[in-house]
Design a binder for these strands. Structure first.
Lengths: 134, 134
DNA sequence: ACAGTATATACGCCAAATGGAATATACAAA
DNA sequence: TTTGTATATTCCATTTGGCGTATATACTGT
């Protein structure tokens, strides 16, 4: 049921041709996130987010893991050279969408910070690896 | 009538998400070409080629100039950093489509060679700049 | 003016992608 | 077992994109 076809360049391009999906991937490159936080950051309805994540997962660009009721999504870095190269390029380029990506990263940071401060309910893998060696 | 909207990254991605269009751009990066030669190289019907060229022209990725009955298409290099970066990336990468691009370049070379040898009817700007200083 | 070659556009059709409402599933806690 | 929260899936309507046939346009040579 869970068949993943071999990833082609055109698949990657088709994927990031959608600004919303590109923003998701840009965020995931900065750290794993659960669906509800992605929703919050991009301000999109749950259905849409869920569907977009599902399509990218099937493509093999991202993977999901469960943590309680949360689903944590993260980038699959192997075989994603093309994607990573583009994200890197866009983060330093000049265009509408590029600015959006930078803003998203800032909002992401703020979100992480807020979670840490307010101590609100949140999956652990979303938080940055706090020094694991005490 | 000829309005060109400002080019966004997603426009570029949408464009190169189509293998055929990507192949065209890859070829044009190697040198200007007229419609009939592009048709010959990619083996697609005239209508299809013409439409794809039209769409990329409207996007601002390529430009056209007339030479007799021929229309010569060439890359617009300004503002195409993202495109060029991807073409360069793909030419040195490993995937189905990447191989296709390399093959196309070889066929392009052969075409140019054949034209030079057989002296067949052909727009000048398609031929490589033969040493202009005698 | 006419015929020929090269290219573009219009129109109609079908496949694929998108978006939302409703519903289903998975898990946790009481 | 019930309730609540998080997420996924189904169904349906709409839009978008690609493709082919036929036709139009632009130019050249006679």
């Amino acid at each position: 049921m869970e068949y993943t076809k071999t990833m082609e360049a055109s698949d990657v391009y088709k994927c990031i041709a959608d600004t919303q999906r590109l923003r998701i991937l840009n965020l995931l490159e900065a750290g794993s996130l659960c669906v509800c936080h992605l929703q919050e950051l991009l301000e999109v309805p749950q259905v849409k987010m869920s569907k977009q994540l599902a399509s990218m997962k099937q493509l093999g660009l991202i993977k999901a893991s469960r943590e309680g009721t949360w689903m944590i999504y993260s980038l699959v870095t192997s075989d994603s050279g093309l994607l990573l190269a583009n994200i890197e390029y866009l983060r330093t380029a000049q265009c509408q969408e590029c600015n959006q990506l930078k803003q998203d990263l800032l909002r992401h940071e703020k979100l992480i910070q807020r979670i840490a401060e307010t101590n609100e309910d949140c999956p652990e893998s979303v938080l940055p690896a706090t020094c694991s060696i005490s």
